[in-house]
Design a binder for these strands. Structure first.
Lengths: 237, 237
DNA sequence: GGCTCGTTTCGCCGTATGGCGAAACATCCG
DNA sequence: CGGATGTTTCGCCATACGGCGAAACGAGCC
């Protein structure tokens, strides 16, 4: 207790201080969908001038929460890693509805959303559970890996181009879904699959939130890949 | 994005501000093992005077992170709920070792520890997985519940007194283990079982950290209850 | 080269907040 | 009842930090 957490106390405080400013919090929330945005745009969403935004971004960068990608005269900021994204999502989600199941605010968000750059929500959990159950996803000591049978099925379904063996090399990680309280698939593998689903039109980004809207075709394909859709909340609710 | 997270931005900032002060962070870390401590003691661990500690505790209480239990002239502070404890643990753990498996700092902490008031770490994950696998723990829509067979086995093993049916009424919840990245058993059910293990001497609290030290007898009993111990990290490491 | 635009640095001010000591309560004990 | 102890409130000071405008820097573009 006494000596061991003497560093961690300052670590935690420093992390908290980064979130403590509404402007910084707004920036982080805006980046929680995995997007990379230039400083000016982040200044706008935070509602502050360019100068202050720059200072905030510098602090977030120094604190290890953001990374920069310079391109021409723009500087694109992005969340540094999915660990940060994971607990950020945990803190940002509407302060937990206590009782068993009165779902959190937006039903669309509960159904499917991005957690950083991978699929989360009921759909993400259902996919992870289904593939684990049928052996398409194997949990090893160093993370989750895709089975060759799954990679073939994904190619056959048109999600990825035929030589889909590159998927086997990616490492997935369990990431706690804070609305479902179960694991969904994160890590590079989760990012790759989610990206492919977006590219293939199975999912579409919502304009005004992190919700992901599955197309009818996408739902059909997912069902064919073993994902149980009967547990999804009614989108009309 | 724009309108939806306008409240959540302030919510997140407020939460961050509570962690932003080393003194408050120290208090929260001290309470992360589920203990309830009087204001004076928290002042000492935080390294501040009684007056300032009182102010900090008031803020944490107003912010919904702590609850008070008045007893005589003492006021015992405790973490408000296990949701708060969960993401607090996520943030507090040594900033993730990036590469696959170079384990976080303290091997004892990785092996078994308290997460709030329930068992976490490799042992907690192993227990949760084992009981789910043999059907002793069933995951329903509203949480996890113990099977009657498990309750009987726990009574037979001497963990709880013979009429163990009261365990069936408790609700458990999956809680992400941030060193293992898998679920362990939290919620009232997890708290009850962990408490029983402490009472029965299967586990012992470490003096200087949140680590839980299993006794030889405890490990034997756990193995009899189906928990695989071969995955535990070498305690001597 | 000179212009524009995006971004950062600098200097300044106002407020918020942490720290303490002293004093006020409250509770337990004799 | 009076004294000791734990906790909170009050008043004060010092500092940290966010906010902005102005200016500097750098990259693109004509």
């Amino acid at each position: 207790m006494s000596r061991a957490d003497l560093p961690s106390r300052y670590q935690l405080a420093e992390l908290g201080a980064l979130l403590a400013e509404p402007a910084r919090a707004a920036m982080l929330l805006a980046l929680l969908d995995g997007s990379a945005r230039p400083a000016g745009e982040l200044a706008r969403v935070a509602g502050v001038g360019a100068a202050t935004a720059s200072a905030h971004l510098k602090r977030l960068r120094d604190g290890g929460l953001l990374v920069v990608h310079e391109q021409g005269r723009h500087r694109y900021y992005r969340l540094a890693d999915d660990d940060a994204a994971a607990w950020l999502e945990a803190m940002a989600l509407p302060r937990a509805p206590r009782v068993p199941r009165p779902r959190g605010s937006d039903p669309a968000l509960c159904r499917a959303r991005t957690c950083y750059r991978h699929l989360a929500g009921q759909l993400g959990v259902a996919l992870c559970e289904a593939w684990l159950a049928r052996g398409w996803l194997r949990a090893g000591g160093d993370g989750m890996h895709l089975d060759a049978a799954c990679a073939e099925a994904l190619a056959a379904s048109g999600l990825v181009q035929p030589p889909s063996s590159w998927l086997l090399g990616l490492c997935g990680r369990g990431c706690l879904d804070w609305t479902e309280r179960k694991l969904h698939l994160g890590g590079p593998l989760g990012v790759a699959i989610t990206g492919a689903m977006l590219d293939a039109g199975w999912l579409r980004r919502s304009q005004r939130s992190r919700a992901l809207l599955p197309s009818d075709d996408g739902l059909r394909r997912l069902a064919q890949l073993g994902v149980r859709l009967d547990a999804l909340v009614d989108p009309a609710a």
